[in-house]
Design a protein around this nucleic acid. Structure first.
Length: 202
DNA sequence: AGGTTGATCTAC
DNA sequence: TAGATCAACCTG
């Protein structure tokens, strides 16, 4: 069965992405990531908010690596981390802004093996076979790689971002969003921030 | 603790 | 240029 036949063929429109990464990151929890015949539900995201965000690659300005990050909203930004893992992001806000949302966890829906872990940005890219070859893909017009709207409103917990301690104070900003009811988040929220009781299970 | 590699930075 | 350093991670 193909993704389209299964009803995951709606594409999030350009306007969805053309907002601050902080808004998009929250709105992406519960949406569906489609790559080829594979479909997965997004359960964890992080916002990276341009050159002033010292944890964001945009801090280095426009370079060979950040060209797509600084490109138009709604495109994929895929980069290599630690020499081993690809990380999948969606570009937000608009050309020249350098905003993106990192997808950090998904749960299998269709065509993704249940026995392969898909929590963590490196693992999910591997599970869905997303690589730097997908860097720059237009998620609005592609039939191969895109995001489809969520079908119900998820619960959302908030925490600081993971692995960005070097960025100083801004590392503590509550810019990570996750569905605390999912088994596929990369790690439980260290604490809940302002969203009432958060039950994190693993 | 350490692997592994491309991008970026720093020093000639 | 070339060599050094770093990195939004994962595994053991």
């Amino acid at each position: 069965m193909t993704a389209a036949l299964a009803g995951y063929d709606d594409h999030l429109p350009r306007e969805f992405y053309a907002r601050d990464a902080l808004v998009v990151a929250r709105a992406l929890v519960g949406t569906y990531l489609v790559h080829g015949h594979r479909v997965a539900r997004i359960v964890e995201t992080e916002a990276y908010r341009g050159p002033k965000d010292l944890a964001c690659h945009a801090r280095a300005g426009v370079t060979k690596r950040t060209r797509t990050l600084y490109g138009p909203a709604g495109h994929a930004y895929v980069f290599l981390i630690y020499g081993m893992y690809d990380c999948f992001n969606v570009v937000c806000l608009g050309e020249g802004k350098g905003h993106a949302v990192l997808i950090r966890g998904v749960e299998p829906v269709l065509g993704v093996p249940e026995d392969v872990r898909s929590d963590g940005p490196g693992r999910l890219a591997r599970a869905l076979d997303i690589t730097r070859a997908d860097n720059g893909a237009d998620l609005v017009s592609s039939t191969h790689l895109y995001l489809a709207p969520r079908t119900k409103r998820p619960r959302i917990a908030v925490s600081a971002r993971v692995g960005v301690a070097y960025a100083g104070e801004i590392a503590e900003a509550p810019w990570r969003f996750l569905d605390p009811t999912s088994r596929h988040v990369s790690r439980p929220p260290p604490r809940s921030i302002g969203l009432g009781a958060v039950t994190s299970r693993r």
